[in-house]
Amino acid sequence: MSAIRGFTLLACLAFPGLLLAGDKDGQVEAEMDATLLYLAERDALGSFDQPLTISRPAQVRYELGAVVDVRKPDPRGLEVLAITPDGAAARMGLKTGDRLVAINDRRLDGQAAPAPLLLDAVRKGHGAVRLLAARGKSRIQLTGQADTTAIPAYQLTVGDAASRHASGCGYVSYSAMPPASEGLFESFITRIDGRSTPARINLLRVPAGRHVLTVQELIPEHRLSASQNLQRRLMQRQSMARAYKTLVVDIKPDTDYRVATRLHKDRLDRGSIRANEYWEPVVWEQRAIRCR
């Protein structure tokens, strides 16, 4: 039912982690971490080397307290799937099974996409709601006020580039050939601190300090047997991005940290490969390099 959405009306876009009234026991930080994790997993934070700044003025969130089927237009109106107890819709008398035909004189039984109509109608009404609904063979009119929540203005910067020059910078890289005789093979750094790395750049500048690298192993197939490669492909197909691993690196200024894949030859049985335990990302070499 992912296409069925609750009738929660926002005057503007807002992160869920910012809808908190206070920071009791670090709740804001915990919610923000969860929100950034959600965005990072979907590659929504952009490139790690470009700061991302999001700012919004003060907003108002309008909630009717009803779950409405807005997957597609319906000439009978939009079906009400659930009602929040003590919410605005319940106070107005709306019931599960009713169909919304119009809201604030905006028709919902036509061919236009219903979700934008709902949002726009309540926003322009500043939370005042006039509903025309179908209940069985009857038409009913309901009026009331949507519940509101004030959202303060905010500005969020992810990956502030200014900090690079304040504390120096270094590099992480993955292009140099690691010594295969030591069980080390090439890797690919897919993300830094949850943000995607640019294509075809394998010497990546980062601010000095702690960073979390997401690493993909690139062990050549000829280093494994046919059955081992089969198990690896099955694991990667099933796990997808979860087949990658993270590596925490404390970057010192003017230093390049070369990343590789270490193959664990004692963990090449079927169970270990399917559990993704046959390798780990490592820093195999550090070298001095001027960063500017």
Rank of each mutant, 00 (worst) to 15 (best):
N202L: 12
V70L: 04
R99Q: 10
Q236I: 14
R267E: 07
L213G: 02
P114W: 01
I151G: 07
N276T: 07
G209T: 03
I54G: 02
D266S: 13
Y154G: 00
R262Q: 15
A150K: 12
E31F: 12
G77C: 05
V215I: 12
G17L: 11
K137M: 11
Y278F: 14
L213P: 09
V172I: 12
R274I: 10
N276P: 13
P253C: 05
A30R: 14
G93A: 07
A112V: 09
F188Y: 10
R76G: 15
D69C: 08
K72S: 13
P220Y: 03
A226R: 13
Q228S: 08
P116Y: 01
N229L: 03
D74K: 05
P85Q: 06
L9S: 04
F7Q: 03
G144N: 05
L100D: 03
E63F: 06
A275Y: 04
V283M: 02
R258V: 05
K252M: 11
A3T: 09
A128C: 02
R237Y: 09
R139H: 11
S2N: 11
A134S: 15
Q236M: 13
G97P: 00
A89N: 03
M92D: 00
L20E: 12
K265I: 11
H126L: 14
V248F: 02
G125C: 05
R200S: 13
G26S: 12
V282W: 00
P253Y: 04
G271T: 11
S173W: 02
R71N: 09
G110W: 01
R287M: 13
C169A: 15
P220R: 04
T157P: 02
A102L: 12
Q231V: 07
A146L: 01
E285N: 14
P75T: 09
S187D: 02
A40C: 07
D250W: 04
L131N: 02
Y244N: 15
K252R: 15
P16A: 07
N229V: 06
S227K: 08
H264G: 07
S272H: 14
A134V: 07
S239V: 10
A89R: 01
N202D: 14
T190K: 09
A82C: 07
L10A: 09
L13T: 08
R99Y: 06
A66H: 00
E29H: 08
L119P: 01
T157V: 13
S239C: 07
Q141P: 00
A162E: 13
Y278L: 13
L13W: 09
Q236P: 07
Y278R: 04
S2K: 09
C291T: 06
A208Q: 06
L37S: 11
R233Q: 15
V212D: 12
A89M: 06
D266M: 03
A243Y: 10
L18R: 03
Y257T: 07
T96W: 04
L230E: 15
D120C: 03
